[in-house]
Design a protein around this nucleic acid. Structure first.
Length: 864
RNA sequence: GCUCGGGUGGUGGAAUGGUAUACACGAAGGACUUAAAAUCCUUUGCCCGCAAGGGCUUGCGAGUUCGAGUCUCGCCCCGAGCACCA
C-alpha cells in the first residue's frame, strides 16, 4: 500500500484548486450569500505565525462548510500593509517600504496557499495600493466635510521611540501598543476624528448585535463609558488675578481638553466667578466639603490670569510634567495642594476650600469635581490625608438617630440626613430634586476621547488637505465686503507658520495624493512628519485659487485602511467609488467576523464608527458592519508563556507543515481546545492528529469497488456523526468536530461500507483536511469533480435512534445498574425490569419505595 | 479597586440538570523486529481488596432537587480588560 504523503498531495490539490478558481465568489448569485471575514494580515518580514493560523483556519472550515451547504460564500483576503515595521526596516536597510512590503506579501501568500486556505484571491486588496488608499483619503474628506475631522492643539499621547502621536486606544497600560515604550504627554497640533460624536450611536448599536460575544460588547461599552449626572456651578470667592487682568476679568479661554473637546469652563465674569463640576451624585451635594480641580484646569486658570501661590504653581507644573506611567504608579498615594481659593456650596451656602490635585482628571467631565468624602472613596482618602471635613449625608437606614462613624466612604444608596429640607428623602429620588434646587443641568459624560488621527511618520496615507494663505484672505474679504451667496460653507482656517491659512480639501479628481519617493524615512521627532522636508511635494498649487499652497504632511494611522477594507472586498476594482451600492447591498453585512480580542477597542470600534458614519452619509446599506463576531484565544508557546522571539518559544507553523503536512497542522490547531480559549501549543500531541490522518488514508485504502449493501449499525453511527459535526461547525466548536471525526473512524473502521458511506465520510472530512479529502474523493473513490463543491450530507432523523438502548437504573440518584431495554418502553414495564435486577434488589431489599421517577429512554430513579 | 471569563485525571480537554473523566497526548505491559523507529493489542481518575466487590472524586463550604461539573449563595485561587472617569 502506498503511504500517506501529505507534502505530495497537498501541492497537487492547491494547484488544482487555483486553476479551477474553486473559491471565487460571484456577485448577485441566486444563492444564499455568506460573507466570512478574517482580520487581514500585516505582511511582516517574519511571515505569518500561529496568531494568524487560528482565525484563518476557523474561517476556512466554516467557509468550506457553507459552500457545501449550497451558499454563495465570499472568503476574501488582503493586506494591511501600511505601518511601522516596514518603515523601520526601510530606515535600517535603505529599502523602499513598497519593495519590502511586496516581497513580504508574496511570501505570506505562498504560506496561506500552503495552509490550504480557500480565499477568493480575485478580490485581494492592499491598503498601500494608491487605487485603494485613494478611497481611504476620500472617506477622510467626507469626515472632514461633515465637520468630524478637525485640527486642534492639545496634550496627546506621544511615543518617544516611534516618534509619533498615538490614539487613546493605542496606549496599553501607559505604554505604546506597538513597541511597549512608556508613553509621554506632548502638546501638539493634531488631526482628530470626532468619534465622540458617535459615542451614543456606538453604544446603542451594541444592543442590536445579538451574535456578538457579551464580553466584547461589554468591553466596548466600558470603553465608551457613559455616565449620566448633572453639572453644578459653585461660586468662587477670592480668586486672585494678576493686576493687568483685574480691570477686564474675562477668564473664558477657548478651553479645550487635552484632546480637543470642549471641557472645563472657568467662567470668571464680572463679580461672580464660577467653577462648574460634573457629578453623578447630586444627592450628596450637602456633603460636598471641598472642591478639587485638575492640574490641567488649574494651568488654564494660570494662563488666563490667576495669580496663585508659589507652592500651587510648583505643584501644577510638577504634576503636568510627570509621565503618564509615573502618575499612574503613584496613584495610590493622593497628592494635592490648597489653592488659596474658597467657594460656596450652593446647597447650604457654606464656604468650602478649593484644592488642586491630580486625582481629578483634566480630560473628563469639566476637569473639576465637588468632593464628598463621606460618599466617595477617593475623596475620603484625600480628606483624611489633608484633614478635611467629612460630612455624612446619606444613611443606609432611616430614620436612624445617629449615623455610624465612617472608616471608609459609604457609596451606596440610602436616605438623606443633614440635607436641609431633603432630609429623609431616598437618595435616588433626591438626585434630580437637589440638582434642580441648585440650578444644575442634566449632563451625560463619556470616557471615550476623540481619535488622534495623524501620525508623524512616512509609511501611511497622506492626509489630503492643502493649506492656502490666499484663500483665507479671500474668504475674509468676501465675508466683510460683498455678501456673496456662494460663500464656502465648509471653509475653515488654521494657523501655519504664524499665518492664517484656509484648509482646502484636495478635490476628488486629484485623489489619490500619492506618497512621494523619499530618501530619508527617519521620523524627525519634533512632531513634524518626514514628508515635511520634501519641498517639491509640500509646495503645491492651491486646488481652489491656484495660488501657493502647502500640503498637510502628517499621515493617517494604520487603522485608517483597515476601517473599511471589508467594504472594498465587495467591489475591489471599482474606479469610480469606494464600492458600488449594489454589491454592498448583496454582500453586507459580514456574516461572521473571525478575529482576536486585542482589537476589541481598536479596529473593531474604529470600523464600527466609520461604518456608522458612512451609513449616515447614505453610502452603506445598514448601520452595523458585522453581524456576528467570533473571537479566538491566543496560542501560547509550549512552555505556557506568550510566544516571543526573546523567549525562544516560538513555534513556526511552517515547521509543522514540513513535517506533518498542512492538514495535520489545521486539524491539530482546531483540536487544541475551544476556539476562544488561551491554550499552550504542545508539539508532542500533534502525532495524535497525524496518526488519525494516516489511519484515514489506510481505511480508504481498504476500499474495494465490490461494496457491500449491508453495513449493520454503521448507518446509525454515520448519521449521528453528520448531526454532531454539522452542529459543532455552526456553533464554532471546532475541537469537538475533530474528536467526532476520530470517534467516527474508531467506530466504523471494522465495518464493510457501501461506497456512498465512504463518500459521506470523505465529505465530513473535507472542511478540516481539504487536501486529504480531495485525494480520497478523486483518486481513491474515483470521482471527477472536487469534493469541495459536493453537497454537505444531511442526516436522517429516523436513523439517529437505535431500537435498543441502555437505561440507567438509579437508587436515590446513584447509578446502580444499566439495563438494556427497547426504545419507547413505558414506565410500568421499565419498572418491572429494573426491580427484577439483582444489583438493584441489593439496595431496595427491605426498604420502602417512596417513589419511582422515569425519564423515557434515559433512566429510572428509585427513591427509598 | 472595578468589570468580565475560568478552576474537571499525569497533560490538552469532553459532558441539552440524568452513566463525569468522551477524544487525544503521555505512561506501563505485550505482539512484530537481530535491534530501534513506526504500527497493532491491553491497562491507565483516586483509595481499600488476591478477587468478586465496595467507597471516594469536577477549587472550598453550604443550599435547591429524586438526581448538581452544570442552578443559587458565600469563600479561595487563576486569567483577561479597565484603571483615581467623580
Amino acid at each position: 500500500m502506498i503511504k500517506y504523503n501529505p507534502q505530495k498531495i497537498e501541492k497537487k490539490w492547491q494547484k488544482y484548486w487555483e486553476t479551477k478558481s474553486l473559491y471565487t465568489a460571484k456577485d448577485f448569485s441566486g444563492k444564499d450569500k455568506k460573507y466570512i471575514l478574517i482580520e487581514f494580515p500585516y505582511p511582516s518580514g517574519e511571515g505569518l505565525h500561529m496568531g494568524h493560523l487560528r482565525p484563518y483556519v476557523a474561517g476556512d472550515v466554516y467557509s468550506r462548510y457553507l459552500r457545501m451547504k449550497g451558499c454563495e460564500v465570499m472568503y476574501p483576503i488582503g493586506w494591511d500593509a501600511f505601518g511601522l515595521p516596514a518603515e523601520n526596516y526601510a530606515i535600517k536597510n535603505k529599502v523602499h517600504p513598497k519593495i519590502s512590503t511586496q516581497k513580504n506579501i508574496d511570501n505570506a501568500k505562498k504560506q496561506l496557499q500552503g495552509w490550504g486556505m480557500s480565499f477568493d484571491w480575485s478580490r485581494e486588496v492592499n491598503t498601500t495600493d494608491p487605487d485603494y488608499y485613494k478611497w481611504t483619503q476620500w472617506i477622510f474628506l467626507q469626515f472632514y466635510k461633515a465637520g468630524l475631522a478637525y485640527e486642534a492643539t492639545g496634550l496627546i499621547n506621544w511615543c518617544p521611540k516611534d516618534k509619533t502621536g498615538l490614539a487613546n486606544e493605542e496606549v496599553i497600560n501607559g505604554c505604546c501598543e506597538r513597541c511597549g515604550t512608556p508613553v509621554e504627554k506632548k502638546e501638539l497640533r493634531q488631526w482628530y476624528l470626532k468619534i465622540t460624536a458617535y459615542a451614543e450611536k456606538l453604544l446603542e448599536g451594541l444592543k442590536t448585535l445579538d451574535k456578538w460575544p457579551e464580553s466584547v460588547k461589554l468591553q466596548q461599552a466600558n470603553w465608551i463609558g457613559k455616565s449620566e449626572g448633572a453639572t453644578i456651578q459653585f461660586t468662587i470667592n477670592n480668586l486672585q488675578l494678576t493686576s493687568d487682568r483685574q480691570s477686564n476679568v474675562n477668564l473664558r479661554p477657548e478651553l479645550r481638553s487635552r484632546e480637543g473637546q470642549p471641557s472645563s469652563r472657568a467662567q470668571v465674569e464680572g463679580i461672580s466667578n464660577v467653577v462648574e463640576v460634573f457629578t453623578t451624585r447630586p444627592d450628596t451635594l450637602f456633603g460636598a466639603t471641598f472642591l478639587v480641580i485638575s492640574p490641567e484646569l488649574a494651568k488654564k486658570w494660570l494662563d488666563t490670569g490667576w495669580q496663585a501661590g508659589l507652592d500651587v504653581v510648583a505643584y501644577i507644573n510638577e504634576r503636568l510634567n510627570k509621565g503618564e506611567q509615573l502618575r499612574q504608579a503613584e496613584a495610590k498615594d493622593k497628592t494635592g495642594v490648597f489653592s488659596g481659593i474658597s467657594a460656596i456650596n450652593p446647597a447650604n451656602q457654606e464656604e468650602i476650600s478649593v484644592w488642586v490635585a491630580d486625582y481629578v482628571l483634566g480630560g473628563y467631565g469639566t476637569g473639576a469635581i465637588m468632593a464628598v468624602p463621606a460618599h466617595d472613596e477617593r475623596d475620603f482618602e484625600f480628606a483624611q490625608k489633608f484633614k478635611l471635613p467629612i460630612k455624612m449625608v446619606i444613611c443606609p437606614n432611616y430614620p436612624e438617630p445617629k449615623c455610624p462613624v465612617l472608616d471608609n466612604a459609604y457609596e451606596g444608596e440610602g436616605y438623606l440626613v443633614d440635607s436641609g429640607k431633603f432630609d429623609g428623602m431616598p437618595s435616588e429620588e433626591a438626585k434630580w430634586k437637589i440638582a434642580e434646587f441648585v440650578g444644575g443641568k442634566k449632563s451625560v459624560q463619556y470616557k471615550l476621547r476623540d481619535w488622534v488621527f495623524s501620525r508623524q511618520r512616512y509609511w501611511g496615507e497622506p492626509i489630503p488637505l492643502v493649506f492656502c494663505k490666499n484663500c483665507a484672505v479671500n474668504s475674509k474679504n468676501q465675508k466683510s465686503n460683498l455678501k456673496i451667496k456662494e460663500e464656502e460653507p465648509n471653509l475653515r482656517t488654521t494657523i501655519r507658520d504664524g499665518e492664517e491659512c484656509a484648509i482646502v480639501p484636495v478635490p476628488e479628481e486629484d485623489l489619490p495624493v500619492k506618497l512621494p519617493e523619499i530618501e530619508k524615512y527617519e521620523p524627525t521627532g519634533t512632531g513634524e512628519s518626514p514628508l515635511a522636508t520634501i519641498e517639491d511635494w509640500v509646495n503645491v498649487k492651491c486646488p481652489k485659487c491656484g495660488g501657493a499652497g502647502k500640503r498637510e504632511t502628517n499621515t493617517m494611522p494604520q487603522w485608517a485602511g483597515s476601517s473599511w477594507y471589508y467594504l472594498r472586498y465587495c467591489d475591489p476594482n471599482n474606479k469610480k467609488e469606494f464600492a458600488d451600492s449594489e454589491p454592498l447591498k448583496y454582500w453586507l453585512p459580514v456574516d461572521v467576523y473571525f478575529g482576536g480580542m486585542e482589537h476589541t477597542t481598536l479596529h473593531l470600534l474604529y470600523s464600527r464608527f466609520w461604518h456608522l458614519f458612512l451609513y449616515d452619509q447614505k453610502l452603506v446599506p445598514a448601520p452595523e458592519p458585522y453581524f456576528a463576531r467570533v473571537q479566538h484565544g491566543i496560542i501560547l508557546g509550549p512552555d505556557g508563556e506568550k510566544m516571543s522571539k526573546s523567549r525562544g518559544n516560538v513555534v513556526n507553523p511552517q515547521e509543522v507543515v514540513d513535517r506533518f503536512g498542512a492538514d495535520t497542522l489545521r486539524m491539530y490547531e482546531l483540536f487544541l481546545g475551544p476556539h476562544e480559549a488561551t491554550i499552550a501549543w504542545k508539539t508532542e500531541s500533534i502525532v495524535g492528529v497525524s496518526r488519525f490522518l494516516n489511519r484515514m488514508w489506510d481505511f480508504f485504502g481498504k476500499y474495494q469497488v465490490a461494496d457491500s449493501e449491508y453495513q449493520g449499525g454503521a448507518d446509525i453511527i454515520l448519521n449521528r456523526a453528520i448531526k454532531n459535526i454539522s452542529e459543532d461547525i455552526e456553533n464554532h466548536r471546532f475541537n469537538t468536530c475533530i474528536s467526532e471525526l476520530m470517534k467516527l473512524l474508531n467506530r466504523i473502521e471494522n465495518y464493510e461500507l457501501r461506497i456512498t458511506s465512504y463518500e459521506l465520510f470523505c465529505k465530513l472530512l473535507a472542511p478540516f483536511a481539504p487536501h486529504l479529502a480531495e485525494e480520497l474523493w478523486q483518486e481513491v473513490l474515483g470521482n471527477k469533480d472536487s469534493v469541495h463543491v459536493q453537497p454537505w450530507p444531511e442526516y436522517d432523523e429516523k436513523l439517529l435512534k437505535e431500537d435498543e438502548l441502555d437505561i440507567v437504573a438509579q437508587v436515590n440518584g446513584k447509578v446502580r445498574d444499566v439495563i438494556r431495554m427497547t426504545r419507547g418502553i413505558n414506565h410500568e414495564e421499565a419498572k418491572k425490569l429494573v426491580l427484577a435486577s439483582e444489583k438493584i434488589k441489593k439496595y431496595t431489599e427491605g426498604k420502602a419505595i417512596k417513589k419511582i421517577l422515569f425519564v423515557p429512554d434515559k433512566l429510572i430513579n428509585i427513591v427509598i
